[in-house]
Amino acid sequence: MRPASFEYHKAVDIEDAVRLLAEFGEEGRPIAGGQSLVPMMNLRLARPGHLVDINALPMTDIEFDDRTMRIGALVRHEEYGRDPRIGKHFPALLDAVHWIGHPTIRRHGSIGGSLSHADPTAELPAAAILYDASMVVRSLGGERRIAAVDFFESAYVTTLEPGELLVAVEFPIPPRSSAGSFMEIGERVGDFAIASVGAHLEFEQATITRAALVCCGADLVAIRAPEIEAFLVGKTLDAPQAVEVGRRFAAMVDPSGDHIASADYKRALIGELTRRAVEAACARAIESK
């Protein structure tokens, strides 16, 4: 359980990194915290010919303007996880961070690394999809943005092209009053989720005006539920019909069983976690008013 040989390159800036990644194509992999990539390399499930170390790159800021929160790809989970502004605008993201791994993992793992790794049960891809985040991607050809929902293609597969580097993720700041929650069930603390559900609600007075729901555990990527989100619109915060919302989400998904959890269990968890996430979001909304 030691990695196969590779060449190591320490990128000095973003230009350097994308130049190296372009040069190596399929053989090149960026490495940040290494908390997901290196286990795969030690197990020889990943064997990149070239590792491009991006830890020195200036992608470590959390920036806010009126409309957007931009988190640099290298910001570590522990760091953004304690930024109070995230709790204000993106409570489901803040909840999600606390479900990631263990203290040492959170200290070194980065938001960009987790998103690029695209584990189907990971929290951050789900949160990105929930909040309609955009991936800011650089290559020799310049910069482009990929909507989260288009970024995650399958388990461990993104639409990043060879030579592209995720440099930041942008979360649009909800224009109205909002609240959210993220709930997860795993076998142990820090384990990959069996199922997780995120809820984001925007409201005026006591009425939900927009809703977003996301779940992990049902498919190879986290999925949204547009019809159920529409069902939530117009409901009141004190009576969101959360049980019915959960029932509908559970009925919509088609998970596969594995050796830890059966398909019917995952479906039931998605229903129950949906109910709890919606209720928790509503409770937070009421509390914030």
């Binding site: 286990p39 197990l43 076998e187 142990r188 603390v189 820090g190 384990d191 990959f192 050796h259 830890i260």
Partner: peptide, 16 residues
Amino acid sequence: PLTTSFADYLMPQAPE
């Protein structure tokens, strides 16, 4: 075998 790493073969950690 499906449980050949500590990500799959789950032993008690302190919080449990």
